[in-house]
Amino acid sequence: MTTKIFKSSQEALRDVISDSTIMSGGFGLCGIPENSINTLSEMPIRNLTLISNNIGNSGRGLVKLLVKDMITKAYCSYVGGNPDLEKRIFAKEIDVELVPQGTFSERIRAAGLGIRAFYTPTGHGTLVAEGKEVKEFDRPCILETALHADFAIIKAQKADPYGNLWFKETARNFSPLMAMAAKVTIVEVEELVELGDIAPEDVHLPGIFVQRIYKGSNYENAIEFKKVKE
């Protein structure tokens, strides 16, 4: 088996160039690929298209790329909690396509699974439907197309050398979908385990969708809003 394991984030990301389209997993800051984001922010690349639910949050995550003006186009569903992004939208410094979150995840899943487009009721009668084909089923639906990327950067809790992945709690979110939708999927993990250590029935994403794996380090695993029982 050709190894998919890379020694460092720098090595795993070395062929990411300007003008690339990159998907980045995570919901808010939960499950974001911290090491890959940090490494990309240090690379001399620009004019990136980012596909990510929040494009960072609370000044962290992909905001590191945003504040260096490395991102010119973005697809996301939610801007709340990301003042750096909102500011750039109003200043027209970035071209943002806001996509309803269910449509966002399904467009990514569709790309990975060979579906070219699908009809959905979500967004009908709103700005989201502008310029899109409408077809009447049980009710009016709009045509949405698959969303592809050159690279996906995601984080999993565990990977084996084949790239079988296991995610922790709600850190899974968009990551397995993005892994399927990109030409090259780069996974950073907290734990690299042996083949067989993740039981077949516990594999959340089969390794066929993963091209590169490395062990990350120094995770912040930031909590945005800590709420505890009073």
Partner: peptide, 26 residues
């Protein structure tokens, strides 16, 4: 830090809970 709701607030789960990806969720 990996157990949150859509408001990015920490939560707990009840017995019988399940986790899944965003596509299945939607």
């Amino acid at each position: 830090p990996t157990l949150i709701n859509a408001g990015k607030e920490t939560i707990s789960t009840i017995k019988g809970a399940s986790f899944f990806d965003s596509s299945l969720s939607f």
